[in-house]
Design a protein around this nucleic acid. Structure first.
Lengths: 260, 260
DNA sequence: CTAGTATATCTAATATACAAGTTAATGCCG
DNA sequence: CGGCATTAACTTGTATATTAGATATACTAG
């Protein structure tokens, strides 16, 4: 055994048992003091998702570190994390780049989302209390306000809150987490297009149908209405890809790279 | 601009354009030379999932590094990645521990899996070619062989291959990736229980029903049969949690920790 | 002028060093 | 003997230094 473990091996010590869970009070930062790495992650992530940093642009760990006034270590942690989320591509020993959007994941993401949120809507119809239904109506009203203002960003934010609330009511918050992860590339894609006119009022009407089914405790109907709603999000992928070919990566490319 | 970027700023250089995607041949390692951090990740991950390292036991970055003969840096990368996957819990400045299994994610994971694989089965029924159906029957035969031998590990491996194949046939490989992620805690849980007698032949029969529906190109039936199959995996959560209370963490605990 | 090769200079990957915080043993004091 | 401040020894978080690989430029030969 290594000498560094001396204290833990003291025979009659009140040491923490080998398989004891940690007991500290200060564990699991609630949101008070985010670590530097976390801050770097969020900053870079937001810049990528918002399309401030366009797909393909080079990013240097050293430069990011200098800009933030921290060392490379937390920056690197952030970059590695983003690489796993397919938001950056790192070429070993060469460079790191904002990831291009993999076109093949877009339809799959829509399908996965529809499957997951169909379930949350059905579960919500099963469990919703009266007060929760009223909360949903409140969210719908807020969306209507944003729609009337033509405030698309505001609408999008409250739309997210609406979908999250349904998952929460259905007692499946974990599914919403999954949906969020799957939505990331879709959100990037969306930034490349202008919202279609009438999209907001359309979505709002579909939301109302979902809530109606939840209110009348009809899980199957809620599920169907949610799936209908999410079908409405169909993307015109080809047009956008043709307009910005450099921003996308096709599966064939990936395969070419992997299969040497 | 910083002096370190000199080369990239040479005016008439054939430098890589600012937003040019990387062009290297050597990018995206295919599997040839895994990085040290990756190796450490896989090693530690396997030890946790296999329950060789039980929930709650302390792990020290320094010690792991010494054991592997590498520095703390790649070990730390692995630990951070595992923390994001809820396979380790890190208490800042205090210690890192093999994560306890969050009981609340278990039912959610089953629900998510059912939703996702219901979709893949339906899509497989839509797209399956004759040769692909034959591949599925081959996998079924292999499972039968393992079942006859009473080889549970082998059965489990070929079971995974079966489910993956269906996603592949349905042209939704990404959904299988999601299922794999969601399955992790369930697999850890399973290691705490003995397989019920007759479970393998039961699962095999259910698999056959799924393939039958795929073969006859009945998406809805394939979906239902897959969902029935996954319902059969219901876990006796309470019994196991009571038998190993230290291996689990309840939502209430998490909330207590977060809400200061 | 072009193709091939060396070399300079960038990059990320890893190693090492240091800082900041937590935990538990210890010794003092009642 | 029991409770509390002290403190030593551990932990993770961050910074810096080193190593090694990839790419663009400079150079050379034809």
């Amino acid at each position: 055994m290594t000498k560094t473990m001396d204290r833990h091996q003291l025979p009659n010590s009140r040491k923490r048992a080998k398989n004891a869970a940690p007991t500290s009070q200060a564990r699991f930062r609630s949101g008070a003091a985010p670590t530097l790495a976390e801050s770097e992650y969020e900053k870079l992530r937001d810049r990528i998702i918002s399309m401030e940093l366009l797909p393909g642009v080079a990013i240097s760990e050293t430069e990011l570190a200098a800009q933030s006034g921290v060392s490379r270590t937390p920056v690197r942690e952030a970059v590695l994390r983003l690489a796993r989320e397919d938001l950056v591509e790192v070429a070993p020993k060469s460079g790191t780049f904002v990831a291009r959007i993999p076109v093949s994941v877009l339809p799959e993401a829509l399908i996965a989302r529809r499957a997951l949120e169909g379930v949350t809507a059905g579960a919500a119809a099963q469990y919703a209390s009266r007060s929760q239904v009223l909360e949903l109506y409140a969210l719908l009203e807020r969306q209507k306000e944003f729609a009337d203002q033509g405030n698309f960003d505001g609408f999008h934010v409250s739309d997210e809150a609406f979908h999250q609330k349904i998952a929460e009511i259905g007692r499946l918050p974990g599914l919403w987490i999954m949906v969020q992860q799957v939505k990331i590339q879709i959100d990037r894609f969306r930034r490349l297009t202008l919202p279609e006119p009438g999209r907001m009022s359309m979505a709002l009407a579909e939301h109302i149908d979902v809530v109606s089914a939840i209110e009348s405790k009809e899980p199957e109907s809620a599920r169907q209405n949610m799936e209908i709603h999410l079908n409405g999000l169909q993307l015109h992928i080809k047009n956008v890809v043709d307009a910005h070919p450099d921003f996308f990566i096709h599966d064939a490319d990936l395969n070419d790279l992997v299969n040497v």
